[in-house]
Design a binder for these strands. Structure first.
Length: 415
DNA sequence: TCTGGGGTCCTAGGACCC
DNA sequence: TCTGGGGTCCTAGGACCC
């Protein structure tokens, strides 16, 4: 006997744009976009003109001349996103929060309390609408993959239930790009062999898919097309990497540009690691050139680090190495720093005495330890007085950035 | 269409060890 | 000295997701 459809996928519609329309009633019914240089979210009125998330602002304006750019209520995004997901949490503790505006829920054990899953989905939708004021779409199915597709089909502001008996009928008429894991490249590769729908994908031999897309992607898509989705709800997962990047427009690849940027990024990454009591062994940098081609350089250390100055020094070396290998490139458009191979750093969890002695006055103290103490001191001051109160001499960097730091803070928040 | 920021996972080749 | 096979780690790049 087939299991019942008890997985919910709840997804707020056009989230940032809906929040802006909630906060400012004069924006309701109008084409708006959140963002500036790039569209972070578009209202459904804007989507009707072809405006999409991730689209350059200039293009969006061409498509929709009356498009109004709004935004900046980042605290509200977090608050309202949490409030909506908390409504789902009232029905089950088995929640997997995917992002600020989206979560899976397993309500198998809640049926005896709240009735069938479709009733719970409807209650969630009306409660989010009434208590939070935002439209939310819900998909209900037996697996995560189907529930996710169902919520996409349900949008905007809808509910779709996929009963176990109708799963393949539901799935096989849909275009392949609705599948989890099919992006632009995979869609194009499939189109080249005449595969446009999930049904056509299901009919394609597994060997052909693996040859075309690689073993992992081909195997996974083949399984999903036949509705075999082994994924379970994961209520918590730990971070595997921490990174930060900064788009630079077009800047000369000089020490004056690279030095401050690397320090700023290293500061962001390292302070976030310390806040989570993490340290990492692998440092990766990414350098993007004027033509948007990007290269990465990485190094794996014998011991994990989390000190800003050490990370900055290693990252600077890696950037220099990458530029050395591409000495014909004179202009860069992006720098990124990441740290992976994360470990829990027990030492970081200690409350250390708040002292700022310099290295010379601490005989026997290794430089790394002194730097680490300094970093912890900076973290503590920032906790008290705010992020801008102490810097590493690179605060003047912000003028070119198109995405406010508040938004970055939001994106990096533990969900 | 030349575009942000933070992530995850996969692939392929090479080094190294047993 | 040469050779085989398996496993693991590292590095660079790429696709994808929100």
């Amino acid at each position: 006997m087939a299991a019942a459809a008890t997985i919910l996928h709840a997804d707020l519609d056009a989230f940032y744009a809906s929040v802006e329309q909630l906060l400012d009633p004069s924006l309701r019914g109008k084409p708006i976009a959140v963002g500036g240089g790039v569209v972070l979210a578009a209202s459904y009125e804007a989507k009707a003109f072809g405006v999409r998330g991730g689209m350059p602002g200039r293009l969006a304006r061409q498509l929709c001349p009356h498009l109004q750019f709004v935004g900046g209520h980042y605290q509200e995004y977090q608050r309202l996103g949490d409030a909506a997901i908390d409504v789902v949490r009232d029905f089950t503790p088995l929640i997997e929060r995917v992002s600020i505006d989206e979560a899976f829920a397993d309500v198998t054990g809640s049926v005896h309390l709240f009735g069938p899953p479709v009733d719970m989905a409807q209650m969630i939708r009306s409660r989010v609408s009434e208590e939070v004021g935002l439209p939310i779409s819900v998909g209900v199915a037996r697996t995560k993959h189907l529930a996710k597709i169902a919520s996409q089909v349900a949008k905007p502001d809808g509910l779709v239930v996929v009963e176990p008996e109708t799963e393949l009928d539901f799935l096989h008429d849909l275009p392949v790009e609705l599948m989890w894991g099919v992006g632009p490249v995979t869609k194009e590769r499939l189109a080249e062999i005449g595969v446009l729908t999930i049904g056509e994908l299901a009919e394609t031999p597994g060997r052909s898919l693996e040859r075309l897309l690689g073993r992992a992607v081909g195997g996974k898509l083949g399984a999903l097309a036949w509705n075999r989705d082994p994924r379970e709800i994961e209520t918590h997962h730990r971070a595997r990497s921490v990174s930060a990047q900064s788009a630079l427009g077009k800047k000369p690849a000089t020490a004056e540009v690279i030095g401050p940027t690397v320090r700023h990024l290293a500061d962001r990454v390292a302070s976030r690691m310390r806040a989570k009591s993490k340290a990492g062994r692998t440092v990766t940098v990414r350098v993007r050139f004027a033509d948007l081609r990007a290269v990465t350089r990485s190094v794996t250390l014998p011991a994990a680090i989390s000190a800003t100055s050490i990370l900055a020094a290693i990252a600077a070396d890696l950037v220099a190495a990458a530029l050395d290998d591409h000495s014909d490139e004179k202009v860069i458009s992006l720098l990124a720093i990441g740290v992976s191979h994360l470990e829990n750093d027990a030492a970081l969890q200690l409350e250390l005495p708040f002292e700022l002695e310099n290295e010379e006055r601490r005989p026997g103290t290794e430089k790394g330890a002194a730097r680490w103490v300094l970093d912890r001191a900076v973290d503590a001051v920032r906790d008290k007085f705010g992020r801008e109160s102490v810097g590493y001499g690179s605060v003047a960097l912000r003028e070119g950035g198109s995405v406010p730091d508040d938004f970055r803070e939001l994106a990096e928040k533990e969900l």
